[in-house]
């Protein structure tokens, strides 16, 4: 392994970490603003112009707050749980191509940390590990609300991984590769080649599963404020709680990237226009997360499970069978 590759990779990791940590913060700002506007409010206004520095203020607050470890928690697990959430979120980003290749200072840059041939499998796998954050945090907290939250997160994540996996199976059968670059390139021909047209059911199912995986409204059950306080985050304070937060928002971004790349053509042919199109698509999906939060109510856990196993999974299986049949004949 040559030195340049190592340096390049480290540089890319640092950039991704910095950018997406910052984006997670900005994400909260946008969420608050968007929700406020949709509810005829102004949102943060007082810190900085239009409240822009609210993010910084919150960051300072989270960093300087006392890190409270309650008395009866399982201390090592309690401490490590937020790290798992944040770390897995960023680790998943390793196989995501955020940008087409470009040349800078005469050096060809691949804006992907590791273009591995099992990219999407890696992403889904790492995201699945992210389950351990809420699960361990919730179980270690010595708090019944946290415990409920942990149980729910285990149920939701495991169930909806089935959906996300099955729904992706059909597009992957068409593409014949697990690499996200290959998937992107498969649709490089333009808008007509987007997988969403050939696999609309898979797109919808994966999108729904994305809501469950990120725990956003209408599937905001694992930390549903009005019944179980902040769920697994109840006993956390300061930056540990902040790590859960960053993890959640980073996940929202990455899953938006994944949806955009798999179903909506990604960055297309790799031109600058395509690159910006990818950002637009990602932005839309991120915005949609916020939009649904303003518009929709949460479902009940039993409804969520019912939806998963009795509606979505059969649909996904049928979709695979039909895809397979179409591909055979």
């Amino acid at each position: 392994m040559d030195m340049a590759f190592i340096i390049e990779t480290i540089a890319k990791i640092v950039v991704i970490l910095l950018v997406f940590s910052a984006l997670a913060g900005l994400g909260t700002y946008f969420e608050r603003k968007v929700l406020a506007f949709m509810q005829r409010r102004l949102g943060p206004m007082h810190v900085g112009p239009f409240g822009l520095l609210q993010v910084a203020a919150d960051g300072i607050k989270l960093f300087t707050k006392e890190d409270i470890i309650p008395q009866n928690v399982v201390k090592p697990i309690f401490k490590i749980a937020p790290v798992i959430t944040a770390a897995t979120a960023f680790m998943a980003a390793a196989a995501i191509p955020f940008w087409p290749e470009f040349t800078a200072f005469g050096y060809k840059v691949h804006p992907i940390v590791a273009d591995i041939n099992v990219g999407i499998l890696y992403v889904l796998g790492i995201m699945a590990i992210g389950l351990y954050g809420p699960l361990l945090g919730g179980m270690a907290s010595a708090n019944k609300f946290s415990l409920i939250s942990a149980a729910r997160s285990a149920a939701v994540f495991i169930s909806y991984e089935v959906i996300s996996g099955l729904s992706l199976l059909a597009p992957l059968m068409m593409v014949g590769s697990l690499s996200l670059i290959d998937i992107n390139n498969y649709q490089a021909g333009g808008i007509g080649n987007w997988i969403v047209w050939s696999q609309p059911v898979a797109f919808i199912l994966f999108w729904i599963a994305a809501f469950a995986e990120t725990g956003r409204t209408p599937f905001h059950l694992i930390a549903n404020d009005h019944e179980i306080i902040d769920g697994f985050g109840t006993e956390y304070s300061g930056m540990r709680w902040g790590l859960f937060f960053i993890g959640e928002y980073a996940n929202m971004f990455f899953i938006s990237f994944v949806i955009a790349i798999i179903f909506l053509g990604g960055f297309g042919d790799g031109s600058i226009a395509g690159a910006f199109q990818l950002l637009l698509k990602v932005s839309f999906f991120f915005f949609f997360f916020l939009w649904t939060r303003a518009a929709w109510p949460d479902v009940r856990p039993d409804q969520l499970m019912w939806l998963c196993w009795k509606v979505l999974m059969p649909l996904a299986v049928v979709n695979i069978v039909i895809t397979g049949l179409v591909m055979m004949f």
């Binding site: 506007f37 949709m38 005829r40 409010r41 102004l42 649904t292 518009a295």
Partner: peptide, 28 residues
């Protein structure tokens, strides 16, 4: 479920909040 899914109730909700955002009639 089918009725509610395809009747588009979800989109009504989305439209209502989007409309308010576009109108930008802030009451604060």
């Amino acid at each position: 479920v089918v009725k509610r899914t395809f009747k588009g109730e979800l989109f009504v909700g989305l439209w209502v909040v989007m409309r308010e955002m576009i109108k930008f009639d802030i009451h604060t």
